[in-house]
Design a protein around this nucleic acid. Structure first.
Length: 238
DNA sequence: CTCCAGCCCC
DNA sequence: GGGGCTGGAG
C-alpha cells in the first residue's frame, strides 16, 4: 500500500495550475517592500508583522521598524521596551517581545544569523509552521511549502471543492498539496503568487471568479452557483 | 455590541 | 484540541 497518492492532483491539472498561477502573478503581483530584499532578518520581521495584521497596516511599520533596527544585531542590542514601543500600534504585543528574543538568541547562539532549517526556525517561540515555511522559501529560497489561511482557502477550493479529499486529515492533505504543487526551484515566486492570488482573486468573501484563470478546472467554480459558503476546513468544536 | 477569525502557545 | 489577543463582520 502507498500512503501518498502521487497522482493527486492529476499531473496535467497540477501543471496547468502552476503555469496559470505564475503567469497571473507576472502581471498582477503586488509591490511589497519585503519583496525587494533577500535579507532573512528583514523577511522575518515582515512575516512576524504579517502574522495577524493586514498588509496595509504592516507596510509603514515595517519601514519604520527597519529604519530603527536595520540589522539583527541592532535589534538584539535594543531594549525590549524600546522594541515594544516601536511596534505600537500594531497590536498582539507579544510579537515584538518574541522577535527581540529571537534576535538575541540568533546573535548569541547562531553566529548572528537566522537559521536556515525548518526545525531550527520552529524551535523559536513565535515561529510556527507557517512562518518557518515562509522564511525558508522567501528568505532562503528553498522549496518549502507554506499554508496560511489564504493558501488553505485557495487549495481547498481549487483542488478539494466541498470534499475533504482522500480520507487523510484535511490539514495534512493541504500541506501535502502545497508541497506537491511547488515547481522545482521556484518556491519563492510560486508561494508569493499563491498569497497574492488568495488576497486578490480567491478572496474569502466574493471571490473574483469571472477573472480567475483557474476556472477550467477549479472544483468550486462557479462560486456563486448556489451561494455555497466556503467549505469549512474543520468543524466548529461546539 | 457580540462573535468569529487566525497564528501561535500550551 | 483549547485559549489568547485584536480587528472586522454581522
Amino acid at each position: 500500500m502507498s500512503s501518498v497518492n502521487h497522482h493527486f492532483p492529476d499531473p496535467v491539472i497540477r501543471r496547468k495550475f502552476r503555469q496559470r498561477l505564475l503567469r497571473w502573478y507576472a502581471r498582477h503581483q503586488r509591490d511589497l517592500p519585503w519583496r525587494k530584499t533577500s535579507d532573512p532578518y528583514k523577511i522575518l520581521v515582515s512575516e512576524v508583522m504579517l502574522q495577524q495584521t493586514q498588509v496595509d497596516r504592516v507596510i509603514p511599520k515595517y519601514k519604520e521598524f527597519l529604519r530603527k533596527y536595520p540589522t539583527l544585531q541592532e535589534l538584539a542590542g535594543a531594549s525590549v521596551g524600546d522594541v515594544e514601543a516601536t511596534w505600537r500600534p500594531l497590536g498582539y504585543n507579544i510579537r515584538p517581545v518574541r522577535l527581540h528574543a529571537i534576535a538575541q538568541e540568533a546573535v548569541g547562539r547562531h553566529r548572528g544569523k537566522i537559521p536556515d532549517s525548518l526545525e531550527e526556525l520552529q524551535a523559536f517561540k513565535g515561529i510556527g509552521r507557517y512562518t518557518a515555511g515562509a522564511v525558508m522559501s522567501f528568505a532562503f529560497r528553498k522549496d518549502a511549502p507554506i499554508l496560511d489561511t489564504n493558501v488553505k482557502r485557495v487549495l481547498q477550493r481549487v483542488f478539494l471543492g466541498s470534499t475533504n479529499g482522500n480520507g487523510s486529515k484535511p490539514l495534512k492533505r493541504l500541506w501535502d498539496l502545497s508541497a506537491a504543487l511547488i515547481p522545482k526551484g521556484k518556491a519563492y515566486d510560486f508561494n508569493q503568487a499563491l498569497m497574492d492570488f488568495g488576497a486578490l482573486i480567491c478572496t474569502a468573501r466574493k471571490p473574483n471568479c469571472p477573472n480567475c484563470p483557474m476556472q477550467p478546472f477549479c472544483l468550486s467554480y462557479p462560486w456563486d452557483k448556489d451561494n455555497t459558503p466556503c467549505p469549512k476546513l474543520q468543524r466548529p468544536s461546539k
